[in-house]
């Protein structure tokens, strides 16, 4: 019973590592890396939900009876694209911030502008 859910728990651990990096790190680039880890772990979570024991990849082949659930795969394809779009935008923001503030450390930026 416990082992049945082990896969999910590993994903949750990964998720929380990413989440922690996002909120605790002061470096803007590292925050984005954390965000990425957070997102990928959610992807793995979805794909885990789509797995069927003994099933094969959802492409019709002769002789295969059991397929994995294709729907989570579709959703995650979309989510990956959304993720990379967010990353690209975030990174270009970081570049502009560096050009304007001369730093990518949260504390330095906050000090400069007294935000």
């Amino acid at each position: 019973m416990i082992l049945d859910l082990f896969n999910y728990w590993v994903v949750i651990a990964l998720m929380m590592i990413g989440f922690f990096i996002v909120i605790a790190r002061g470096n803007l680039v590292k925050k984005i890396i954390g965000l990425n880890i957070f997102q990928t772990s959610v992807f793995i979570f979805y794909i885990s939900a789509g797995k069927v024991n003994g099933g094969t990849a959802p492409i019709v082949v002769e002789g295969a009876k059991l397929y994995s659930n294709p729907l989570p795969h579709v959703l995650i394809l979309t989510a990956i694209v959304v993720g990379i779009a967010t990353t690209a935008l975030a990174l270009s923001l970081v570049i502009r911030i560096k050009a304007n503030y001369g730093s990518v450390e949260e504390s330095v930026i906050l000090k400069q502008d007294k935000l």
Binding site: G50, V52, T56, S68, L77, V81, G83, T87, A88, L91
Partner: peptide, 24 residues
């Protein structure tokens, strides 16, 4: 976990595009 399409995309994005952008 049998998600070949997703794996393909993640290989292209996770191992290709996003590290490239990160390095840039």
């Amino acid at each position: 976990m049998d998600a070949v399409d997703v794996a393909f995309t993640e290989a292209a994005v996770g191992a290709g595009v996003s590290p490239l952008l990160m390095l840039a």
